Simulated scan of single mutants.
Amino acid sequence: MFTVYAISSISRKYVYVGLTSDLEARLHRHNSGYGRTTKPYIPFELIFQKEFSTRSEAREFEKYLKKTNNGKRRFLGLR
């Protein structure tokens, strides 16, 4: 199972969209400062998750969320 997720910085205005097969471990890595992209924005809270049976399906949805403002607005509730 693969999960597309979005996390929001609690302290700053920043949303990160990603893909993982172990959501709990990935969230721990984000909040521990292991990710170079997300480190300046910790701590995070999970705001969205959707599971897929294949990695390719998950990757397509992740790309949709990252590349379109409509995707972010529709699925993540962002303006």
Rank of each mutant, 00 (worst) to 15 (best):
F2S: 09
T3P: 01
T3S: 13
V4S: 00
Y5L: 01
A6C: 11
A6Q: 12
S8R: 15
S8C: 15
S9T: 06
I10Y: 03
R12D: 11
R12A: 07
Y14V: 06
V15T: 15
Y16C: 12
G18F: 08
G18P: 05
G18V: 15
L19V: 13
T20K: 08
T20Y: 04
S21C: 06
S21P: 00
D22F: 13
L23H: 06
A25S: 09
R26H: 07
R26Y: 03
R26N: 02
L27N: 07
H28D: 13
H28Q: 11
H28K: 15
R29T: 02
R29C: 05
R29H: 12
R29F: 01
H30R: 04
N31V: 10
N31T: 10
S32Q: 11
G33V: 07
G33A: 14
G33C: 12
G33N: 07
G33L: 04
G35M: 14
G35C: 08
T37D: 04
T37G: 03
T37S: 13
K39E: 12
P40W: 00
Y41H: 15
I42W: 06
I42K: 09
I42H: 02
I42G: 03
P43D: 07
P43H: 03
F44A: 03
F44Q: 05
F44L: 07
E45M: 08
E45C: 02
L46K: 07
I47C: 03
I47S: 03
I47L: 02
F48W: 06
K50T: 04
K50N: 08
E51S: 12
F52W: 13
F52S: 15
F52T: 07
S53N: 08
R55F: 05
R55D: 13
S56K: 15
R59A: 04
E60D: 15
E60V: 10
F61W: 10
K63Q: 11
L65D: 01
K66A: 05
K66I: 14
K67Q: 07
N69F: 06
N70I: 12
N70S: 13
G71N: 01
G71W: 07
G71C: 02
G71P: 11
K72M: 09
R74K: 10
G77K: 05
G77Q: 05
G77I: 09
L78Q: 14
L78D: 09
